Simulated scan of single mutants.
Amino acid sequence: MRVVVTGATGGIGERISLRLAEAGHSVVLVGRAWERIDGARRRIAGAVPGADLGGEVADLSLAAEVRALAERLEPLPDVVINNAAVIAPLDASTSEGRQLMLATNHLAPYVLLRILAERLGDRPARFVIVGAHPGGLRRTPVDLDDLECRNHRALGPVPSFRPFVGYGRTKNMNAMFGYALAARLAKTKITVNGGHPGIVDQTGLGRSSTGLLRLFTVMINPFTQSLDEGADNPYWLATAPEVAGVTGKYYLRRRAVPTADHTTDPARVERLWDESARLVGLPADVS
């Protein structure tokens, strides 16, 4: 089985890739720089001699690079695990003029999976979108009038916590996109499911956090899971026979769980789909 893993050069993504390599799967590691991809390949190969490991360089914050990645992947994957995500300052933007967290965390999987779904046609495949804890996200609904979080004050009274709330919104977008894509691909052999890896240390997500958010990340460290534990749910969704053919679900510790009503409301889900299409220059309709 050929598996593409984004954000595979460290943290959960690298550990998922290691698990896949140990099981004998061919793994394509996607990262921003070849040096980081090569480092991850060396570490995985050191643990799994003879592992079938490839690499693809793409800046997932740029829709043009994501599109190019989706169009050049060959042979086509059997599984795609969208794991890459960042927590960044709210005013951090990409060279394409998009807010960095929105572009990396939501628009990248939106472009990648849409194009790959078209290329796959009637071939079977699994799309896994790594999200966050659904319970923790209930209080951070997506503001469909402000996808790029320009209204900072709406994200709470503590400035240093606002990037974390913005990140939470993008994770809710992941769930909403997963439901929308699963519905559109319901008559194909492609399944789409989301899942939470748990709160995991050593992911690098909070490397740019400051103030109270930095203190918060330090305080929760004793309660975090290991990378192996964090990799389990995404790995299971990518490989388990018991979820073959299952689509449009969200999983926590290998169990399907509901997400907040604001992530499943049909009108909200469709509006996010259409707005995302507009932002990346794709048609709203799926061929």
Score class of each variant (00 low, 15 high):
Val57Pro: 08
Arg114Met: 07
Val30Cys: 01
Leu120Arg: 14
Pro109Leu: 02
Ala8Glu: 00
Pro141Gln: 05
Ala88Arg: 11
Gly156Tyr: 02
Thr259Ala: 06
Arg36Glu: 07
Arg67Ala: 14
Gln225Cys: 15
Asn83Glu: 00
Leu252Met: 14
Ser93Gln: 15
Val27Asn: 01
Thr264Pro: 02
Ala125Cys: 03
Gly13Arg: 01
Ala256Ser: 14
Leu29Thr: 06
Phe164Lys: 12
Ala92Cys: 11
Phe216Ser: 01
Ala175Asn: 14
Thr191Arg: 04
Leu62His: 13
Glu35Ser: 12
Leu212Asn: 10
Val30Pro: 00
Leu137Arg: 04
Glu14Tyr: 06
Arg67Phe: 12
Thr6Leu: 03
Gly13Pro: 00
Arg36Leu: 06
Asp78Pro: 04
Asp265Tyr: 11
Asp285Phe: 14
Arg123Gly: 10
Arg41Asp: 11
Glu270Gln: 13
Asp145Gly: 14
His133Leu: 15
Leu205Gly: 07
Leu272Val: 10
Leu185Val: 06
Glu275Val: 13
Ala40Pro: 02
Ala103Met: 00
Ala238Ser: 05
Ala88Lys: 09
Leu237Met: 02
Gly24Tyr: 02
Asp122Lys: 14
Val48Asp: 03
Val165Met: 15
Ile115Arg: 15
Ala260Asn: 13
Ala132Trp: 09
Ala182Cys: 10
Arg19Ser: 10
Tyr250Trp: 09
Arg207Gly: 11
Thr104Val: 04
Leu282Pro: 03
Thr6Cys: 05
Glu270Arg: 14
Thr264Tyr: 03
Val257Trp: 10
Ala8Gly: 01
Val48Phe: 02
Gly178Pro: 05
Arg19Asn: 13
Ala63Ile: 11
Ala186Val: 08
Met176Gln: 10
Gly168Lys: 06
Asn151Ile: 04
Leu213Ala: 14
Ala58Glu: 07
Gly168Pro: 08
Leu62Ser: 12
Gly211Gln: 03
Leu76Glu: 07
Tyr167Gly: 11
Val28Thr: 13
Lys249Thr: 14
Asn83Arg: 00
Val3Gln: 00
Arg15Thr: 14
Ala132Cys: 08
Arg254Gln: 12
Thr94Cys: 04
Ser287Asp: 13
Asp91Met: 08
Arg32Asp: 00
Ala88His: 07
Gly121His: 07
Val257Pro: 09
Arg123Thr: 06
Val192His: 05
Leu185Ile: 08
Thr203Tyr: 07
Arg126Val: 03
Ala108Asp: 10
Asp38Ala: 15
Cys149Arg: 15
Pro124Gln: 02
Thr104Ser: 07
Ser226Gln: 05
Leu53Arg: 12
Leu279Ala: 14
Ile220Gln: 11
Lys171Pro: 06
Gln99Lys: 03
Asp201Glu: 15
Leu73Met: 06
Val200Leu: 00
Lys249Glu: 15
Ala21Pro: 06
Ser226Arg: 06
Pro109Gln: 05
Arg67Asp: 13
Gly168His: 11
Glu14Lys: 10
Arg98Pro: 12
Val57Gln: 08
Arg207Cys: 08
Leu185Tyr: 05
Glu22Gly: 05
Leu90His: 09
Val28Tyr: 05
Glu270Thr: 14
Val200Ala: 05
Arg119Met: 08
